[in-house]
């Protein structure tokens, strides 16, 4: 104990190397604290405030990834604990995707594979960083379940099924291009060595080349694939480039990938000039359905500028005044993506 005190004293004797406000050392730390206050309950439940206060595996996964980025072990523990107790209740290790606060229970026990990917990635990183065998074991179980239940080969692509149920109809498979969290897949290919992760990576990148529509070449929220036919926007979902697919440039740049699909989306937003960017675009007609200054999009645009080497500063990712959960999550995710990909743009 005496030795430890002495060591602590030594650390305290070198104040010049440690900024006065330790939080300020990490870009976005204040925003993370605000994010927790606004959207994460003490129990570890991430509340989708723009969506009836429900929770979902994707939100829990975002929360865990952010907790890791801000090295917030206590928050991570709470987030995972709530996820495990309330969502990891399926008979396989995957997470039930949707939890309804009205009934206080899971109201759709199907999974969502982006939530599963995020959780597996976060648990794997947490297990290694904090040397925690329980997290590592959970990460392995999840990774294996994703690999064996959700990754399929169809119509010439290696695909990520969006969920166990409801996406395979005879010859047609429906996927969500924005469920490819490329950084997570990159991590899992090292963590759970199996070539299928590399195939999945390639499959997602190929879809983003071939599955683009309108003269702006936009990726759809949902894409349908049949053997021998080119990919089309899913006929069973709304054929739009919208709230799902707007994450495509974020996930690409976060993984350090320059890709035509990301560039085209950024160019499309930029083409609005001084008007607010289009948020929902009809892929059949090309018409813009919704256009407003969504904070999440501004942050992803800032990330795009980072990628070109433009210094944007951390202010470009600061949380808005009254933003609901989703745009705020996108802002913080863009920030940590920038930190990882081009930290110099935050200086």
């Amino acid at each position: 104990m005496t030795a430890m005190r002495r060591w602590l004293a030594v650390v305290c004797l070198v104040p010049l190397l440690v900024p006065d406000d330790a939080a300020a050392a990490v870009p976005g730390a204040t925003d993370w604290a605000r994010f927790k206050t606004l959207y994460i309950l003490d129990s570890g439940r991430v509340v989708d405030t723009g969506n009836g206060g429900i929770s979902h595996s994707e939100g829990q996964g975002y929360g865990m990834i952010l907790a890791l980025a801000f090295d917030d072990r206590a928050a991570f523990a709470r987030l995972w604990d709530w996820t495990r107790v309330n969502l990891q209740v399926r008979d396989d290790p995957l997470l039930a995707w949707r939890w309804d606060p009205v009934g206080g229970r899971v109201d759709d026990v199907n999974n969502a594979s982006d939530g599963d990917l995020l959780a597996a990635w976060a648990l794997g990183v947490a297990g290694r960083r904090w040397n925690d065998a329980a997290y590592l074991a959970e990460a392995r179980r999840l990774a294996e379940a994703i690999r064996s239940h959700l990754i399929i080969r169809h119509a010439g692509y290696t695909l990520l099924l969006p969920g166990i149920h409801g996406f395979v109809h005879e010859e047609r498979v429906t996927v969500n291009p924005s469920y490819w969290v490329f950084t997570a897949i990159q991590f899992l290919s090292r963590f759970d060595p199996n070539l299928v992760w590399d195939d999945l990576m390639r499959g997602g990148l190929a879809l983003l080349v071939e599955g683009r529509f309108t003269r702006h070449r936009l990726p759809p929220d949902w894409l349908a694939l049949e053997p021998g036919r080119p990919p089309v926007p899913s006929p069973i979902k709304d054929p739009v480039f919208g709230y799902n697919a707007l994450r495509v440039p974020l996930y690409l740049l976060w993984a350090g990938i320059r890709h035509v699909a990301g560039n085209d989306v950024l160019a499309y937003w930029a083409s609005s000039g001084s008007r607010p960017p289009p948020v929902v675009t009809d892929l059949a007609s090309g018409a813009v359905r919704e256009r407003y200054a969504m904070g999440g999009i501004a942050a992803i645009q800032a990330l795009g500028r980072c990628a070109t080497g433009e210094p944007v500063g951390p202010g470009a990712f600061a949380l808005g005044e009254d933003d609901p959960y989703y745009p705020s999550a996108l802002r913080l995710l863009s920030l940590i993506a920038a930190r990882r990909y081009r930290p110099d743009c935050l200086w």
Partner: peptide, 16 residues
């Protein structure tokens, strides 16, 4: 842990 068991039962996940 009790809460997790009840959540699994409510979701009909009997093996869990």
């Amino acid at each position: 842990e009790r809460r997790r068991l009840r959540a699994a039962a409510a979701a009909g996940q009997w093996t869990t």
